[in-house]
């Protein structure tokens, strides 16, 4: 048991190592000269050469990687060419904001997806089911940036009840103490409820824009699994033993049907990180994704590698978490290490 988990985590570490190589290679094959680009055309060749040396750009690719890797294990990801700060400091500054959005999205996505899936199953073939199906299609086919644009039109101009830009309103002071860096949490910890409410409102639109697609997918998958399982003998048998309908639906049918949904949710949460690149940008929300996007557009190589490694690490953590939830739900995985039914 423990051995199997250790093995799995070992594989993930290998993946992370591979990812670092991949990212490094992608970031370094940039055509053009990152040092020159960072400093602009007016700076003298000596200064540029100095920066090149500082960035190790004058050394062979392999040596560059080894140096970068050595730094990375000491959490030194180099300096950003754009902000001139160490990348790790920028990550510390911007990551909590992105985590806040993604966590809220994930909660909405999981709760909403499973809930709508159950409702659609309960009313299979009725109008509620049809409505949820149509809405799911709408959610699946619209990219988050389309939702973001629609929300900005709707809430920015037509019914301005929710803020469409930034993390907090200008009139609201930032949390007095930065504890986690997530404003909503810090406001709560410092007991500033008005601040919490404002920060929460700022989170709503971006996270809803990000989660609609995933929620729709989770709802559809939950429904199709529940409907498929409801025709299985074991549900019929339990029904034939007089298990009350509610208990049958919420306990005996839901648990086996949730397992595939969990794996899909993990993928969808990863996709949220990807789409956050655009949505944070649109909502002018100072998170790590917006930072990463500007790094990419400006060919800020250290920042690109740093941000991508952070997201890769988070993605792997999400996967481990989803493996754990699946194992908790599914005794076949927990006790045998694989589901084969």
């Amino acid at each position: 048991m423990v051995l199997r988990w250790l093995q799995r985590i070992g594989v993930y570490f290998l993946v992370l190592l591979g990812l670092s190589i991949l990212v490094f290679v992608i970031a370094r094959v940039i055509p053009g000269d990152p040092a020159r680009q960072a400093l602009g055309p007016r700076v003298s060749e000596e200064t540029v050469q100095a920066l090149r040396e500082k960035l190790n750009l004058d050394k062979p690719l392999f040596t560059q990687y080894v140096l970068w890797f050595k730094g990375a294990i000491r959490l030194d990801l180099g300096d950003s060419l754009l902000t001139r700060r160490p990348v790790i400091e920028d990550v510390r500054r911007y990551l909590p904001a992105t985590l806040e959005i993604v966590l809220l999205s994930a909660v909405f996505m999981a709760a909403g997806g499973i809930l709508f899936g159950i409702v659609a199953t309960k009313y299979t073939g009725k109008w509620q089911d049809a409505l949820i199906r149509v809405l799911s299609y709408l959610g699946i086919v619209s990219p988050p940036f389309v939702w973001a644009v629609l929300f900005m039109l709707l809430f920015g101009y037509i019914i301005p009840v929710l803020p469409t830009t930034g993390r907090i309103a200008q009139s609201v002071a930032a949390p007095t103490r930065m504890i986690t860096g997530m404003y909503t949490v810090d406001y709560l910890l410092t007991g500033n409820l008005a601040g919490w409410w404002d920060a929460f409102k700022h989170l709503l639109l971006p996270s809803i824009a990000l989660m609609l697609g995933g929620m729709a997918q989770a709802a559809r998958l939950t429904r199709s699994n529940m409907v498929e399982n409801s025709m299985k003998d074991y549900i019929q048998a339990q029904q034939a033993y007089g298990v009350p309908e509610k208990k049958l639906l919420y306990k005996y049918l839901l648990k086996p049907s949730l397992i595939p949904t969990i794996s899909i949710l993990a993928l969808d949460i990863a996709a949220v990180f990807g789409n956050a690149f655009l949505v944070e940008n649109l909502f002018n929300y100072p998170g790590l994704s917006r930072y990463g996007l500007s790094a990419m557009l400006n060919k800020d190589i250290n920042a690109i590698s740093g941000v991508v490694m952070v997201f890769g690490l988070i993605f792997i953590l999400v996967n481990i978490l989803s493996d754990m939830v699946v194992a908790w739900l599914d005794p076949r995985v927990r006790l045998m290490g694989g589901a084969d039914v």
């Binding site: 299985k232 003998d233 074991y234 549900i235 019929q236 048998a237 339990q238 029904q239 034939a240 033993y241 007089g242 005996y252 648990k255 086996p256 397992i259 739900l329 599914d330 005794p331 076949r332 039914v341």
Partner: peptide, 20 residues
């Protein structure tokens, strides 16, 4: 269903809930 009639299904690999 609770106390009158009970039913045993054809395929015992399918008639018990796999996750309980």
């Amino acid at each position: 269903r609770g106390s009158g009639v009970s039913m045993i299904f054809q395929d015992p690999t399918m008639s018990l809930n796999p996750v309980f």
